[in-house]
Nucleic acid binder design. Structure first.
Lengths: 135, 135
DNA sequence: TTCTATGCAAAGACTTTGCATGCTG
DNA sequence: CAGCATGCAAAGTCTTTGCATAGAA
């Protein structure tokens, strides 16, 4: 994703563009992927960036709140951030920690009970946990 | 749940019964519920128990691994432990943090793609996030 | 008595806060 | 130049580790 495209997305979501935020966003938005804070930091360091860990946390939180990326709660070990924000589902391999997308168009869910009283739908996500077959 | 029932479940799952573990299990297994570490600690203290926080963490982790309870990753703020271990789904109210069960019999999922190569199914869980309707 | 398992203080990791700095109008 | 937004050091919180102790054989 080009710098100009990131700037445009920042602008439309109301995220003020700072050099640190651009660096972080460039890493995440490079392609469809799931990265942890640690992975983002590693890639920043690989590029000789000096952005602090705190700023990575704060930026990812901000991006999540603004809808630039999606926070993924799947792995008890770490929090992932997903560059794909459209609704979709996940496979999670609990042996390897790998997370992969399932397009939401494939999936059909039926038999949902009514939402709890006084609430409205926010999102529906399916998590399919798998493990490696023993060989 | 009676002390004798808890002992029987410990035994069948290979959990050595210590007084601390029994106290913690008694709180969780009292009824179908979702409790955070903090909530378990508060209830222990209310009973004048002196079990340490570390032991609560270690015991809940052990119970989860042995299958006595189920770890629930839904709320970014805290980890919940679910006394219901049979497969089921969840409503999560992101305004209040409330978590409620959806019986798995109600739900039908179709259109699932093949599992990633070399993996086998472990579990499938649906998380329906809701929020309070503005009034 | 030796060996294994356990509880928890202390260590470590993760995440957030609050202030110094820089930017905007 | 006043006022707001931001980055990050430092603080705080969450979770795990490693050892002293208790229990089993």
């Amino acid at each position: 994703m080009l710098r100009s495209e990131i700037l445009a997305r920042f602008d439309s979501l109301g995220i003020l563009p700072t050099s640190q935020r651009l660096e972080i966003a460039a890493i995440l938005l490079e392609k469809a992927q799931h990265l942890s804070v640690e992975q983002v930091l590693t890639r920043l360091r690989a590029k000789d960036s000096t952005v602090s860990k705190a700023t990575v946390y704060n930026s990812l939180n901000l991006f999540g709140k603004k809808g630039l990326i999606k926070e993924c709660l799947v792995d008890p070990e770490r929090r992932y951030y997903d560059s794909t924000t459209s609704p979709h589902h996940h496979f999670f391999n609990s042996d390897t920690g790998e997370l992969s997308d399932i397009a939401s168009e494939c999936i059909e869910v039926s038999g949902l009970p009514d939402l709890p009283k006084g609430t409205q739908l926010e999102s529906a996500e399916l998590i399919i946990r798998v493990r490696n077959v023993a060989d």
